[in-house]
């Protein structure tokens, strides 16, 4: 018996270099193109490619002063903000209904709410385009907002729903028992419990909306969002200015996603 046990080697003894190099390969495949893009944005060369010729911040300066890009950034921010607000508010209400009430067709509603996240953007885009033209609505940034709500809502709903489901009913009952009216129960007990999930849901919805292209292509009017503008420029005049903008977008998205994860984790730890 003892001999047999000593023959079993601990996992650490497996060849670590194999694991490390394989991991590097996978991560390299995933992230190297992004690193190249970041490098190009600092490259002192007017074409969108390597080799590296020296460090400059010119492309960032140009991007900052570009009126079209400024306009597009503003459009993107306002679309993302509106879509986030709508999606989060609707998601919160839907999650609340599904968690705290019993009603006919609840499971179907839950599935229907999650479905849009599985739909390819191109399907959502075409469907909504057809729908809006049937309604004789002019395409504009407002229609883009509605398109973004379609995939923002499931994200918000899912995040808030899974948190709200963990909420112990006895806490709401205790608050009511001690004299709190339903609205106070929500403000004093339920909201503190789900706040972090709501914020994290909003940040996710914002990020998704901010760099969305496919649905936006179908639903936008004359105004361009930032990803659309970048896409448009790539086809005509390719400059490192684009790389600079992309790097900034990457940075902002990264910060937001990390922040949303951090807030969600902190909320779970507290609850």
């Amino acid at each position: 018996m003892i001999a047999m046990i000593t023959e079993i080697k601990p996992r650490q003894a497996a060849k670590p270099w194999l694991l490390i190099s394989w991991s590097l390969l996978v991560f390299g495949f995933l992230y190297l193109p992004i690193l190249v893009l970041v490098a190009i944005s600092f490259n002192d060369s007017p074409i969108l490619s390597l080799p590296f010729r020296g460090v400059t911040l010119d492309w960032y300066l140009q991007a900052w002063q570009d009126k079209t890009l400024q306009r597009a950034l503003w459009n993107s921010l306002s679309v993302a903000a509106s879509a986030t607000l709508l999606a989060t508010a609707l998601g919160l209400l839907a999650a609340f209904a599904c968690c705290r009430y019993r009603f006919w067709g609840k499971n179907s509603l839950r599935i229907a709410l999650n479905l849009p996240i599985l739909l390819p953007g191109i399907v959502t885009g075409i469907a909504m385009l057809a729908y809006f033209s049937d309604l004789n609505w002019d395409l504009s940034l407002q229609t883009v907002v509605l398109g973004h709500v379609v995939f923002g809502l499931p994200v918000a709903f899912g995040t808030i729903y899974s948190r709200l489901r963990q909420f112990p009913d006895s806490l709401a009952e205790a608050a009511a028992d001690l004299g709190a009216a339903p609205i106070q129960v929500f403000a004093d007990v339920i909201w503190p419990y789900i706040r972090s999930a709501v914020i994290s849901a909003a940040l996710l919805a914002f990020t998704l909306s901010f760099d969305e292209v496919v649905v936006t292509i179908f639903l936008t009017g004359r105004d361009n969002t930032l990803p659309m503008e970048i896409w448009g420029r790539l086809r005509t005049r390719i400059t490192p200015e684009i790389a600079a903008v992309a790097t900034l977008v990457l940075l902002a998205s990264g910060v937001i996603v990390l922040a949303s994860q951090w807030i969600a984790n902190r909320g779970e730890a507290e609850g």
């Binding site: 112990p168 006895s170 806490l171 009952e173 205790a174 608050a175 028992d177 004093d188 007990v189 503190p192 419990y193 507290e270 609850g271």
Partner: peptide
């Protein structure tokens, strides 16, 4: 009411 699990507000 004193609840079985006390239902103290965690936050």
């Amino acid at each position: 009411t004193v609840f079985q699990n006390y239902a103290l507000f965690p936050h």
